[in-house]
Design a protein around this nucleic acid. Structure first.
Lengths: 245, 245
DNA sequence: GTATCATGCTAACATAAGTTATTGTAGTCG
DNA sequence: CGACTACAATAACTTATGTTAGCATGATAC
C-alpha cells in the first residue's frame, strides 16, 4: 500500500475505488531525482502538483545574500501544494535531501477528484489544513522555543509524521538529515546544532548515528520539546460522531 | 465595496453575481468583539469560517508555560481558515487586537460556492495559497532575518496587505499594534522591539506614533527588510495569458 | 592504500538579543 | 482633580547563540 494511502486512511475511510484511483495516479508520470538537486525552483511557473513517492525532500527559501531557510520537509506520501497551478510563479524552491521519486499530478486529476471522489477530496483538504498547521507550529518553534526545545520538537514531528506513513519503527526511524540541514530548518548555526544534539544525547533523549535516529523515551523527548501532537490532527474524521458527541 | 471583494478582485475578475453573493454572505451572521478578546480558542470544535469585516485580529499559539506567539495577523477582508470544519478541534486561538466585526460563513455557503461560483472558488484557493505563502515567509523571517530586518519585513507585509484591501494611504496606514504585539509576532522581547523601532526611526525608515504608521521611503524599508513581494502573489490570474505566454 | 571529500566535533571568542528594573507619558475612570 | 492603567523608553547587566578556525572520522574513488 502506498505511503499516501496509508497516511490518508488515518483520517478518512477510503473505498476500494478511492485507493485504486490514488494508486493509479501515483504510478503515472513518475520521475526520479538525485540527492541534493532541485525539483522546482523559485520563480518558475508551477505546472504540476508533486506527490513524493520515496525519499526525503524539503521546501526552502533563500535571501539574496545566501541565507537559506528550510521551511518544511516532505516525506513519502506528502503532496507538495494542492492547486498550486493557479499561481503565476513559485515563491520558494523544492529540493531533495536523499534520492527521491515523485509522481506529477495534473490539473485534470484534481478535477476528477473533486467531481467523483468526495472522500479523497476531503482527505486532500485534511492534508492541506495539516500542512498549514505544521507551518504555524514551525513559526511557534522558531519564535518561542530555545535551541534544544526546538530541536526536540522537530525530531518529534518528523517521527510522528513518518509513523503516520508507516515509515518508523516503534522507537526510531531512518534519518537522512545532516547537521547542516537541521541548522537550516531550525534557524540555528551548524555549531549550535551540534551542541544541541550533544545535549539531547547527554540527557539520553536521542541516539543519532549513521542516518539512524533512535528515541529511547519518546515521552521525555516530547516534553523536552513542549511537543503537543494536536496540530497534526491525527484523529479520524467522524470519531466525535461515533462517540455520540 | 467590501474589503474582501476589493482584495479578491486583485486576483480574479468577479461578475456582478459573484460580488452579490459575497456581499450577501458578509451581511449575514455578523458578530462583533471587543479589543483583546478571543473569537475562537485552541481545543474548541471549529464550527464556522470567519470573515473579518472590520478591525485587526491575530492567530496565536501558547505554550503551557505562557510563552505566546502570534503566528499571523488578520486584516479586514481576510478569511480565517477555509474548510476548517473538517477538523475535530482548533490547534490555535484567534484573538482580536482592535474592536472587530466578523461574518460567520457556513459549510452550506462553501457548498454553494463550489457548485455555482467557480470564480469565487478560484479566488478562495488563491487566498488559501497566499496565506500558506505568508506563513512560510514568517518561518523565513524568524529563522534567518535579524531583528531589524524582521521588523522592517513585517511592516512591509502589513502595509502591502492593507493596501490590497484598500486600507492604506500612499505612504502609511493606521497601525493599532502595540510593541508587545510586535514582540509576540517577531519572537523578540518587548525591550528589543523598542530598540529595533528606534533604529528604524533613526534611519528615517518609519514614523510610528499614536497608532499611525508612516513610511517615508517604502523602497528603502523594503530593502532593509529584504522584502520581496512575490510571495503575496499580487498579479492577476490570466495576466500571463494576456501577455501571450 | 592513500587522497579526497563531506560530515561531525570542539574550543575560544564575539555579539545580538534577553532580563530586570526604573521612569516617563498619555489616556481613562471615578 | 487625582489615581490608575497601559504603553513606551532607557539603562545596566546577563546569556544564548553565532563566528571562526582547526581537527577527527569515515566513506568513496582512483
Amino acid at each position: 500500500m502506498s505511503h499516501l494511502v496509508r497516511k490518508l486512511e488515518n483520517f478518512v475511510r477510503l473505498s476500494a475505488a478511492d485507493r485504486l484511483m490514488l494508486n493509479r495516479a501515483a504510478a503515472q508520470r513518475v520521475r526520479t531525482f538525485a540527492p541534493r538537486t532541485d525539483i522546482a525552483r523559485e520563480g518558475e511557473k508551477p505546472k504540476d502538483v508533486h506527490l513524493i513517492l520515496n525519499g526525503w525532500a524539503c521546501r526552502y527559501k533563500q535571501l539574496e545574500d545566501g541565507r537559506r531557510q528550510i521551511v518544511s520537509f516532505f516525506l513519502p506520501g506528502d503532496i507538495c501544494d494542492l492547486n498550486i497551478f493557479i499561481l503565476r510563479e513559485m515563491d520558494h524552491s523544492i529540493g531533495t535531501i536523499t534520492p527521491v521519486s515523485i509522481a506529477d499530478l495534473s490539473r485534470e486529476f484534481f478535477d476528477e477528484i473533486s467531481t467523483g471522489y468526495p472522500r479523497i477530496a476531503t482527505a486532500f483538504w485534511w492534508e492541506t489544513l495539516v500542512n498549514a498547521a505544521i507551518q504555524r507550529e514551525w513559526t511557534m518553534n522558531l519564535g518561542q522555543r530555545t535551541a534544544s526545545e526546538r530541536m526536540a520538537h522537530l525530531l518529534c514531528e518528523l517521527f510522528f509524521r513518518l509513523r503516520l506513513a508507516g515509515l518508523a519503527e516503534d522507537n526510531g526511524c531512518s534519518f537522512p538529515l545532516t547537521q547542516a540541514d537541521l541548522a537550516e530548518a531550525t534557524g540555528l548555526s551548524k555549531v549550535h546544532v551540534n551542541r544541541t544534539l550533544q545535549e539531547l544525547r547527554a540527557n539520553n533523549l536521542i541516539v543519532l548515528k549513521g542516518k539512524m535516529l533512535v528515541l529511547p523515551d519518546l515521552e521525555r523527548l516530547m516534553s523536552a520539546g513542549l511537543f503537543n501532537a494536536n496540530y497534526l490532527h491525527l484523529d479520524r474524521e467522524g470519531r466525535q460522531l461515533d462517540a455520540n458527541e
